[in-house]
Design a binder for these strands. Structure first.
Ligand code: SF4
Ligand code: SF4
Lengths: 137, 137
DNA sequence: TATTAATTCTACCTTTAAGTAGTAATTATA
DNA sequence: TATAATTACTACTTAAAGGTAGAATTAATA
């Protein structure tokens, strides 16, 4: 039970970018070096973030990445959605089809509360909220 | 963010067995049929459950599986442990090494509460607690 | 004892996640 | 305009999860 590597990397990359002053352009080499993420894998992830519209890229010399929207408007769940890692309302903890709330699975009652807290954590935490917190990057 | 297929299957199998009366022997064909789990994959999982000591198997004609311990003494987390799916105390939500509680990652503060509830759900729910709950099996 | 019904073992196949390599396209600057 | 520094694209490789096939082993029973 954990987030995929792609999701973890993406959150760390964007939280790091959000922590930089004056929204300066950051390039893949800097990011990969600072966060210890394999360069080629990072560029692959960044291209997805660009495609989905979270960040914009400037190609060519002196290029790099910057945010498309304000960091207060990008939620962690927006990032997880890209990698199919967020917790959907209809997701059954035991994987028995879809959750309609009527016909329960064995773990339903125990699952509801942690599920809600996880969803809240993902949906209500913006990049602004988490940027610069903690010493690990 | 979800449990592996193996974990989901194993919980469903054991919860179903725990719901049967008088701890009768159940064989792989019955279980696979009742739970719509691929027979061959189920037997692979069952063999792991036997090796780890949660259930015992009787081989040969009229054989099958039954519990080794009381269902009140088998916790969901015991099952998840087998498939490396439980949430460890030192597990970082962003995968930045191990969690020592001192040097935090960006999501640390938001992660602590859902993490605790998930761990409680897994560690404090026994098979007896969840057997027979809900209509989905 | 032969048959049958069951688990176990070994090996393989398929799909997805994770990561790598090389090149093309783009753009600022010397 | 040539060069260097950057992202994007295509394709590949590796590792892990998920799943399958077949034969070996075991034991009750006819
Ligand atoms: S039972 Fe609970 S967990 Fe399973 S599907 Fe319905 S709601 Fe989701
Ligand atoms: S920071 Fe929070 S989440 Fe990251 S490792 Fe430490 S405790 Fe775990």
């Amino acid at each position: 039970m954990q987030l995929s590597n792609s999701s973890q990397y993406a959150i760390r990359i964007l939280a790091y970018m959000a922590d930089q002053k004056d929204s300066k352009l950051m390039n893949a080499t800097e990011l990969a070096g600072a966060l210890y993420i394999p360069y080629k894998f990072l560029t692959k992830i960044m291209t997805e973030l660009v495609k989905v519209g979270l960040v914009v890229s400037i190609r060519g010399r002196e290029g790099g990445y910057k945010f498309e929207k304000k960091t207060s408007e990008i939620m962690v769940s927006d990032i997880l959605d890209i990698f199919n890692d967020s917790i959907k309302d209809e997701q059954c903890v035991l994987g028995i089809g879809f959750c309609n709330g009527l016909c329960k699975c064995a773990l339903h009652d125990q699952w509801m509360e942690p599920k809600l807290l996880l969803q809240r954590m993902f949906r209500e935490s913006s990049l602004e909220d988490i940027a610069g917190r903690g010493c690990k990057i």
